[in-house]
Simulated assay, not measured.
Amino acid sequence: MLAATAALALGVPAAGAGAAAPAPAATALPALPQPNSHGLTLKSWSAVAGYGGRMADATFTTGAVFTPRGGTPWISPVQVPVTVRIHLPVGYGSDPARRYPVLYLLHGGGGDFQQWSRSDSGNVAATLAGTAFDGIVVMPEGGRAGWYSDWAGHTDGHFAPRWETFHVEQLLPWIDANFATVKDRSGRAIAGASMGGYGALRYGGRHPELFSAVGAFSGGTDLYQANAQKTIADSLWQAGAAIGWTGLLNPFFRVTGDTLYRMETVFGPQNDWPSVTPVSLALNDAYNSFNGKLALYSGGANGTGETDVHGWNRTLHENLDSRSTQHRYCTGPGEHSYQYWTGELKDFVALAYGTAPAQCPNGWGSPAR
């Protein structure tokens, strides 16, 4: 479900798939006042065809991807390009005084920075059209099996990604430096699907001072569950530190060893897992500051579909309830699929930027109590 194998089937269309519908003629992309800053070196800034200049890709190199570790790296150079896709609201830049909220939208396992924007997966431009959200969407690369972590260990080729450093310490201030954003937590939300749901819960729980709303669509919540560990361990053998097609067939990008070794490669010693496990973070009141703008969504409630994900999210919901942490929990019958996640994204932005609907998406009825 969260594994690279499942997500590959769900969220990574074939090359050339997912072209957008015709759009107005492209306009010039906004200038970037600090393109090389906050540890990032900009290599290209280019429009995505079909969006009239409102969607663009920023490609960087950064010392966070990758870091040499554990011996002489088997790849040279160790740094590889990483891309962030950015969607701008209608009329961006027309009012120099206006500042926009930012939604950081994280992709799932086996996917890449394109996953949320393709018309046959997240289709974010159409999904968010007409919703309460009128801001900037930032869709960063997170690796096929990066797990939104600063890896504690290393690949078999002696290098390691530091995705949390890239996203939180580098990309977030880079976005604020180069776009007309609301430059505090009130202007930032974070959400994601599957592995990206884990990432949103992880970043929100560890950095609540940076975000005001968190949404997890079929997200991972519990590193201690045997099925979750198998999913993660399998993804590290299948994809490891691969980014898109880079390294996917290269054995030096993979992590071999037993399940615990692979888990500790990504998340560090088992004693440290409570600090990166949402069910544990909830028991330490890590989500209290979101004041109800925390939303969990999962299918599998009828005993079919993503039943493991349903159980993991149910536990997180119960842990939040035990600490009187306000949140929205929507669940019902359903699969691990964008068929459900796009509706959940609409529901989440209504919660974060407007008024939460009385009913959950996907025909699931009222939020669970």
Rank of each mutant, 00 (worst) to 15 (best):
G311M: 02
T342A: 10
T325D: 14
E344H: 10
N302M: 02
G311L: 04
T304W: 10
T304K: 15
Y340C: 08
Y297P: 07
W341P: 06
H336Y: 13
A295W: 09
V279R: 04
A295L: 14
G299V: 02
T304G: 13
L345M: 15
T307G: 08
L283G: 14
T315L: 15
Q339R: 13
N284H: 15
A301C: 00
D321K: 15
N291A: 13
N284A: 15
W341G: 04
S280F: 03
A286G: 03
Y338L: 09
N284W: 11
F348Q: 08
L316P: 09
S322C: 14
T307D: 07
C330Y: 01
D321Y: 06
E318N: 15
E335N: 12
F348L: 11
A295N: 12
Q339V: 08
L320N: 15
D308H: 05
L351P: 02
H327A: 07
L345R: 04
Q339F: 11
K293W: 07
E344I: 03
D308K: 04
V309W: 00
C330G: 02
N291R: 13
E318T: 12
E318K: 14
T342Q: 13
Y329M: 06
N302V: 05
G299K: 01
N288V: 05
A282W: 09
Y297K: 10
S280Q: 12
N284K: 15
V349W: 09
Y287M: 03
E344V: 07
L296F: 10
S280V: 02
S337L: 14
D321T: 14
G334H: 05
V309T: 02
Q339T: 13
L294P: 14
L345E: 07
T304M: 13
T331V: 04
G343E: 05
R314V: 03
G303D: 11
Y340W: 14
F348A: 08
V279T: 10
T315H: 08
R314T: 09
W341V: 05
G300T: 02
T331L: 00
S289V: 06
F290Y: 14
R323C: 13
A350K: 11
Y340S: 10
E335I: 06
A282R: 11
S337M: 09
L351I: 05
P333G: 06
T342L: 08
V279K: 04
H336W: 12
W312K: 09
A352P: 00
E318Q: 15
T325P: 13
Y287Q: 03
S337Y: 09
Y353K: 01
N291I: 03
V279G: 05
L345K: 07
T307Y: 08
N284P: 10
N291E: 12
V279L: 07
A301N: 01
R314P: 00
D285C: 07
W341K: 09
H317V: 03
G332P: 02
W341Q: 09
Q326N: 13
T307W: 06
D308A: 07
T342N: 12
N302W: 03
G305Q: 13
V279I: 13
N291T: 06
T325M: 12
H310Y: 07
K346W: 06
L283V: 11
L316V: 08
L281W: 05
G311C: 02
D285Q: 11
K293F: 08
G311H: 04
A352W: 00
H317L: 09
L294Q: 15
L281G: 05
G332Y: 00
G292Q: 10
